[in-house]
């Protein structure tokens, strides 16, 4: 964007100092995200944890990465125009909540209405084998 032809006149744009964007921040964000993703993969693939612990761990890693990206990529908390960003952030939280919560609700509901794996294998074998 050039200095000459942009004309921000939003009432929401305040006169705060523009945010500081540093290379270091991006490197931390990028490196951190990769480390967390690989950790999650390694645990899912080779980790010998029992199910609830595993679920909790993966959920924690996901949330941590989410926060990391918000802070280092979207610069949450160092806003240029606080009200606008707050609005967008709240909206994003609502959508994430709806999608994640809704998916868990739906998939769980479907799961509850199906036979378990063991029962299903028994049933299929009783038909004409798998």
């Amino acid at each position: 964007m050039s200095q000459i032809n942009h004309q921000p006149v939003d009432i929401l744009v305040s006169t705060h100092q523009p945010e500081q964007v540093t290379l270091r921040g991006y490197v931390i964000g990028f490196g951190g995200s990769i480390v967390m993703t690989i950790t999650a993969y390694l645990f899912a693939r080779y980790g010998m944890l029992n199910k609830p612990v595993m679920v909790a761990l993966l959920a924690f890693l996901a949330l941590a990465q989410f926060t990391l990206q918000l802070v280092y990529f979207l610069h949450l908390g160092r806003e240029f125009s606080p009200r606008l960003k707050l609005l967008v952030t709240v909206f994003m939280m609502i959508i994430v909540f709806i999608l994640v919560g809704g998916s868990i609700w739906i998939m769980n509901n479907l799961d509850g209405r199906m036979m378990g794996t063991k029962v299903m294998i028994k049933y299929m074998n009783s038909q004409d084998g798998l």
């Binding site: 609502i94 959508i95 709806i98 999608l99 809704g102 609700w105 739906i106 509901n109 479907l110 509850g112 209405r113 199906m114």
Partner: peptide
């Protein structure tokens, strides 16, 4: 905008969810 994120299951009513969902 908000509601369009709250209706997606109507494309798969028949997949087997319960009557509450």
């Amino acid at each position: 905008v908000l509601l369009s994120f709250l209706v997606w299951l109507h494309h798969f009513f028949t997949m087997g969810a319960g009557s509450d969902v």
